[in-house]
Computed example of a mutant assay.
Amino acid sequence: MKRAAVTLKDVAAAAGVSAMTASKAMRNAPGISDATRDRIQALAKEMGYTANASASMLKSGRSGIIQVIVNEYDIPFYSKLIDALSNAIVDQGMVPFLQETKYQPDNATTALSNSLFSGTLADGVIIHASGLTGELVDSIKHGRPALFIDTYEEKTLVSAIMFPNEEGARAAVQHLAAQGCRRIGIVGPPFIDKNELLSAPSTRKLRLMGAKSALINLGLAYDESVVIPLKGMNETYAREAIRERGRDGLPFDGLFCLNDSSAIGTIRGLADLGLRVPDDVKVIGFDGVTSGEFTVPSLTTISVDMNQLASLAVMNLRQQIEAPAGKRPDPTTITVGYTLTPRESTEVR
């Protein structure tokens, strides 16, 4: 005779707990102690219990899958963001499904509208991606639970978790000044004038705005002469730009780079020119995606609290998912904190 499959009710009865408690334990959901969770999971394994995902989805109307869409996987920033989001999703008893757009609008469209995991099989979506069309964003606003990371809208119609872009950039420039720098440059996108900075905010514009305000408050210039523009915000482009700008001498004793990848490239480009960091030029990055060992000297940076960001993002999305029909909470925008992490690239020994 075929042996009946062990059910969740069997596990709950054997553990002396309710079916709800057993369910939370098996989904790693909050609301029970670690000791209770470990005991129930160990007992379930001993009894040979296997969750029936299809039956669970039919019963609850949820899959437990969270779609995560990012621009790419292979740079340190996204590696750290994906790791933090994946851990936070798993900690909440759900499963992450990752997709990358490679900065292509068509790929963003496919990920949101045509993917097997969009709409039907995913309970919600977390997005940090370029190239989202207005039509797609509108469909998100009126559709499934969603959360944007560092995406700016004139009106808050989708919940968002933001980086401390303006505040962090201002702190970076102030740190260079505190270290004695008086000729401070900015490594990043092309120069943006005051009027354009104030229109259609974006991550890069806000970081430039923070740097600009700090420079002006210090009595320093913000104009095209202090900007080293990059073709792309990565190590290779930064290294090339620094070498090109420095062929006839580099007029800076401090450089604020709009992300850590470009800061690493900047340090290497300065070394190519025979300039010492921090003795000749001090360098600071933004994002905090390196632990310091990837550069010599190690990189001073504005460290964004990625774990806080991920925890807030998943908590917000879960609240949306679990809200009764027609009672989804109003969208919110939260800016996460940062820490200025001083290391060798700005600290003269």
Score class of each variant (00 low, 15 high):
Thr50Asp: 03
Arg27Leu: 11
Leu85Tyr: 07
Asn114Ser: 14
Thr301Pro: 06
Thr236Ile: 12
Pro76Trp: 06
Gly64Cys: 11
Ile69Arg: 01
Asn316Gln: 11
Ile321Ala: 04
Leu81Asp: 01
Pro164Ser: 10
Gly265Arg: 07
Pro96Asn: 00
Tyr237Ile: 09
Arg239Val: 08
Ser202Glu: 13
Asp272Gly: 00
Val226Gln: 11
Leu98Phe: 10
Phe252Arg: 06
Ser225Gln: 13
Ser303Thr: 11
Pro251Glu: 04
Glu235Phe: 12
Gln99Trp: 00
Glu153His: 06
Glu244Ala: 15
Val296Asp: 12
Leu299Lys: 01
Phe97Ala: 14
Phe117Ile: 11
Thr300Arg: 02
Asp287Thr: 02
Asn316Lys: 12
Leu273Pro: 00
Lys231Tyr: 14
Arg37Met: 02
Thr109Gln: 08
Gly168His: 10
Lys9Tyr: 12
Val304Asp: 00
Pro331Val: 12
Glu196Leu: 06
Ala129Asp: 01
Phe191Gly: 07
Ile149Met: 03
Leu270Gln: 04
Leu312Ile: 13
Leu98Ile: 06
Glu167Trp: 05
Gly288Pro: 05
Pro342Ala: 09
Ile267Val: 02
Met209Leu: 10
Asn217Asp: 15
Lys9Val: 09
Glu347Phe: 12
Glu154Tyr: 04
Asp38Tyr: 05
Ile192Ala: 08
Leu340Trp: 12
Thr36Gly: 04
Asp193Phe: 10
Gly254Cys: 06
Asp223Val: 08
Gly185Asp: 06
Asp272Ala: 02
Asp123Gln: 09
Leu157Asp: 14
Phe148Cys: 02
Pro329Trp: 06
Ile228Met: 03
Leu258Lys: 04
Arg27Trp: 06
Gly31Pro: 05
Asp91Ala: 15
Val304Gln: 04
Tyr338Pro: 09
Phe252Trp: 01
Pro342Trp: 03
Arg268Asp: 06
Ala325Asp: 01
Lys212Pro: 05
Gly143Tyr: 14
Ile89Gln: 01
Leu8Ile: 07
Ala200Val: 15
Arg328Pro: 06
Arg182Glu: 11
Glu196Met: 04
Tyr237Ala: 15
Glu154Trp: 03
Asp138His: 07
Glu240Arg: 13
Ala146Thr: 03
Ser291Cys: 04
Arg204Glu: 14
Asp279Tyr: 02
Glu244Ser: 15
Val289Ala: 07
Asp223His: 03
Gly246Ile: 02
Ala177Ser: 09
Leu258Phe: 00
Val68Cys: 10
Asp280Val: 08
Lys9Pro: 02
Val6Leu: 05
Met57Gly: 12
His142Asn: 14
Lys205Val: 07
Ser199Lys: 15
Ala214Glu: 05
Leu112Tyr: 07
Ala13Gln: 14
Leu176Thr: 01
Ala238Gln: 01
Pro278Phe: 01
Gly274Lys: 03
Asp10Asn: 11
Leu255Asn: 04
Leu157Tyr: 09
Tyr237Met: 09
Pro201Tyr: 01
Ala271His: 09
Ala200Asn: 12
His128Pro: 02
Asp330Pro: 05
Glu322Cys: 04
Ala323Tyr: 03
Asp38Met: 03
Ala42Cys: 01
Gln41Ala: 10
Asp248Gly: 05
Ile65Ala: 15
Asn307Lys: 14
Ala221Arg: 09
Thr133Arg: 11
Asp34Tyr: 02
Leu43Phe: 01
Ile334Phe: 12
Ser86Pro: 06
Gly265Lys: 00
Ser159Pro: 10
Val158Asp: 03
Gly168Ile: 02
Met57Pro: 01
Leu136Ala: 02
Leu273Ala: 07
Asp280Ser: 00
Asp150Gln: 08
Arg144Glu: 10
Gln319Glu: 08
Ser113Ala: 13
Ala310Pro: 11
Arg183Gln: 13
Asn165Glu: 08
Ser261Glu: 13
